[in-house]
Amino acid sequence: MTLDRRAFLGRVAAVATASAVAPALALPGPAQAATWKKRLTGADLDTNSRWQVAGTDLGIPYVLENGSIGYLFGDTFNTPWPEGPPLPNDWRSPVMLRSNVHPGAPGGIVFDSAARVAGNGRAPEIMHNGHHGIGIDGLWEVSVIPNDGISFSETGRQLISYMSIENWDSVGPAGPHWRSRYAGLAYSDNGNDFVRTPLKWWNNGNNTDPFQMWTMQRDGDWVYVFSVRAGRQDGPMMLRRVRWDRLFYPESYEGWGWNGSNWGWGRPCTPILTGRFGEPSVRRLHDGTWVMSYVNCVTGCIVTRTAGGPDQVWTAEKVQVFPWQEPALYGGFIHPWSGRNANELHLMVSKWTRGLDNRSTAYHVSQFVGSL
């Protein structure tokens, strides 16, 4: 099965919108730019010859319970891009590849295995996906897109936050944006098969719920959850926290909010930032620095901010990747092993470009190296 043409063009429109470039004078100089290190996926690479992962995106890295890194990919195909040819092109999502190679190694990231595969062979999707049909909960579902992953050494359990996509081309006052039906959590106790829980953080009728795209980071007993709207829209970024062993209990989530005189936990969420955010990624590095990245959908740049803690003041944006380096870019997910020094920030960057005939010309993930 493949994405139908309407859905495909709708998602391309969302990517193109996110990559609109502001006037050059509004952008910082190129001296700040991160550098491309290597392309990680493609029909010409071993991701395809070993696991039939050719055209894909995202590559969200998180630490597994055994200490290595899992990489979560979104809509994945055994052809270079979503629309083929040939068709059908084995559409899957999410898919996980794994690696124990440090991204700072001379050769960059090298994948060594795939979830649900013993050795080489087709990497299947790791949880149920409705694929333009009825999803596991009886509701229409176009696809399931991962947002982030987290694991717990105490139990060996892994969790993935995801979006159930209702459509890729929901038209509203701000233009076309994809619409999620809800955000959810899936878990695995064997590192391969993920079970979607009944928990749902429902989107609203206006597609403006700010708790749809999650990124998660643990610090001690707490997991901090940063979230924004689906579809790379204008809106707020929210911050919540929950004890690591209470993630399945929505009533245990505490909001970070402003009461008119000070900030505090256990309140209705108040936006910590506002803007037009792409998919957020937040990681706490080993030196205690918190780093946030996302696509600024006004400038089309992947940017980062840093802070001393999740509920501290975040710095101004620093540009890491410009559209002229990687046209139609998105993602910019932070590798958790970044930060051995200030000049080692590893980012997973997706690229989806198309030609004048609207057919894709690139759909893959690359590794970039920037600085804090």
Results as ranks from 00 to 15, higher is better:
G135M: 07
I160A: 02
R98W: 00
N120Q: 14
W91G: 02
N192T: 12
I160W: 04
I150Y: 03
I160R: 04
G130L: 11
H128T: 15
T197I: 09
I165D: 01
N192G: 06
F111A: 05
G184L: 02
T155C: 06
L185Y: 01
A186L: 01
V144G: 03
I136N: 13
S151E: 02
Y182H: 08
G149M: 09
D148M: 03
A115L: 11
I150V: 13
I160C: 01
V101L: 02
L139R: 15
D137L: 12
D169E: 05
G149D: 04
P94A: 05
G107R: 12
G104H: 05
A186M: 01
Q158V: 12
R196W: 00
G104T: 02
R116T: 10
R92T: 08
T155R: 12
I150E: 04
S93Q: 11
N203W: 03
L97H: 12
V171S: 01
W140Y: 15
P173A: 06
P198V: 01
V110M: 11
S164M: 06
S151C: 03
A186S: 07
S180E: 00
N120D: 15
W202T: 10
S153C: 11
H132P: 07
Y187I: 10
S161N: 09
F152Y: 14
W201V: 09
R196H: 08
L97Q: 09
A115I: 11
L185D: 01
V101F: 03
Q158I: 08
G205N: 06
H102M: 01
P146F: 06
D169M: 10
M96A: 09
G104N: 10
Y182I: 01
E141L: 13
E125H: 15
G133P: 12
A105I: 01
G149I: 10
I165N: 02
V195Y: 04
V110Q: 14
L185G: 00
L199T: 03
W178F: 07
P173G: 09
Y187L: 05
N206T: 14
M163V: 10
N167H: 11
G104F: 00
G138V: 12
S99Q: 06
S113K: 15
Y162D: 08
I134R: 15
L199D: 01
R122N: 13
I126V: 15
A183R: 03
V95W: 06
I165A: 08
W178L: 07
G107Y: 07
T208W: 05
